[in-house]
Design a protein around this nucleic acid. Sequence first.
DNA 1: CGATGACTTGAACGCCATCAATCGCTGTGG
DNA 2: CCACAGCGATTGATGGCGTTCAAGTCATCG
Lengths: 237, 237
Amino acid sequence: MFRNLNAVSPKKDWFAHELDDLSHAKVSSSEYKYNKGTEIFGEAEPAKYIYQVVEGSVRTYKLLSDGRRQIGAFHLPGDIFGFDNYDVHRFTAEAIVDSTLRLVKRESMERVAISDPAMVLNLVAMTTQNLRHVENHLLLLGRKTAKEKVAAFLVEMHGRLTGAGAIALPMTRRDISDYLGLTLETVSRSLSELQRCGYVTVTGNMKREIVVLNVAGLVLLAEREAANEARSGMDPG
Amino acid sequence: MFRNLNAVSPKKDWFAHELDDLSHAKVSSSEYKYNKGTEIFGEAEPAKYIYQVVEGSVRTYKLLSDGRRQIGAFHLPGDIFGFDNYDVHRFTAEAIVDSTLRLVKRESMERVAISDPAMVLNLVAMTTQNLRHVENHLLLLGRKTAKEKVAAFLVEMHGRLTGAGAIALPMTRRDISDYLGLTLETVSRSLSELQRCGYVTVTGNMKREIVVLNVAGLVLLAEREAANEARSGMDPG
DNA sequence: CGATGACTTGAACGCCATCAATCGCTGTGG
DNA sequence: CCACAGCGATTGATGGCGTTCAAGTCATCG
C-alpha cells in the first residue's frame, strides 16, 4: 500500500551485499512475515538473530515503567537491525506495518566473522553507522525545538524514502512523537505550521503522504549544526 | 584536587588491558597533557588518534550554529574515546580539567586489527558499549523529567566515580545541563530538591561534591525503565 | 450505521526556560 | 591587606513552549 510509493533506499549496499553473499554462502538466512503491530523481539531477550527489512517498516524502542516510550530508530527496507548487542537485545522491535524480514542467526554470523576480519570490519562499520545516527539524535532530542525536530524528521525521511514526489510515511503521529520526544499533538501542529509556511504539503487519507516543496528550507530549519570550522593541524605529536 | 577523591573506575579493563598490551607490543602510544578547557579534537576533523583518559576528564559534544550544545558523554579515567568513526570525528572533545591522555594512532591500531580478529571484536565491543550508553541517553533526553534526569546523572556518576563516600564531579552545572538537555538553573534547582528530600548532600566550595545518602531512592527516581518481562521463546524458526 | 482509530485544532495548564539578583570563592592589583 | 572583578552556583520572579484535556472531522470496519 504505502510501499508502492517508496523505492528501496539505494544506500546500505555495502552490507546488504554482505548479507546476500552470506545467505548464498556460509550464513543461513530465511525470511519471515510479521503482522502490523507484532513484536519481533523484546528488550532484554537473548539476541539470537540479526534482521534485515525486506519489505515494510520496523520501530525499535525503550519503555519507562509508566508507559513513556522512546523510539530509537525506524528501520526501512534494506536496513539491518538487531545487531545491537552481543547477547541480549537492548530494544524492543515491532513491525509498524505488515513486514517481511530476513533473519540471520547471530551465531553463524559470528562463526564466519571470527575467521574473516573483513566481515568483522563490516560489523564495526554497521555499528558505527548506528552510532552516528543515534548521536545526531541526541542533539535533536536534547537541544532542538519542536519545529526543528519535525523538520529534521522530514529531512531524514526525505533522504530514506525516495518516493515518487511524495514521502509515504509508514508510521503514525504517535510513533513520530515518540521518536522526536514530543506529543502527537505537537507533531501535528508543527506539521500544519510547516505546511502553512509552504515547506510541505500533507496529503493522503491518513495524512501520511508528505510532498516536500522546499528541501533546502527544511534543512536550514532542521540542521543548524555548527558549520564546524574544521581546523586541521593541531597535532599533539 | 578532585581526582584525589576518586578512584579509577575498575571496569573497562577488557579494553584498557588491550590498550596497555598494545602499548607494550605492536601499537605505539604516548601520553600528552591538555589544560582545562582546551580542545583535544574538533568535530569533522580527521581522526588520527584514539584516546584513553589517564587522569582528568573530557567532554564530547556537538553544537548547533546558535551555540546550543549537547554533550554526548563524559570520559573519566580509564575511558577510551575518539574511536567514533573510521575517518572523521563526529564530536568535539575538550578537557574539562587539566588532563593526561594516552594517544594511540588509529592507523596502527587498524593495522593490528586487520590481522587480529580478536582485536577487532574488542573494537566492536567498545563501540557497542558506546551504543548502549547513547541509547539509554536517548530515553533520558526524550522522555524523562528534569528531576529524573538529574537523578539518573547522579546514579551514573555514582557508579563511575567511586569516591571516598562522596562523588567529586569534575564538571560545571552548565556541563551537566548540556548533558541532560536542561538549563543550568534547572539542574541546580533539581539538585537542591534532591538534597531537600534527603537523597544527597551537596558540599564542597564549588558544590561539586555529592554525598549519596539514598542510592536505591535515586535509582527508583531515575531508572523507571519498564521491568521488561523478558518473554523467552517466541522463536520464529 | 455505530464503533473505532488516526488526525487536527482549540483552550488552559504547567514544567522548564529566561531574566535577574545575590552569594561565596579566587585571583589580581592598588 | 583590602577592593574589586570574575566565575560558578543558588534562588526568585516571570514567561513561553509544549503538554494536557477536550472537541470534532474523516476514514475504515464490523
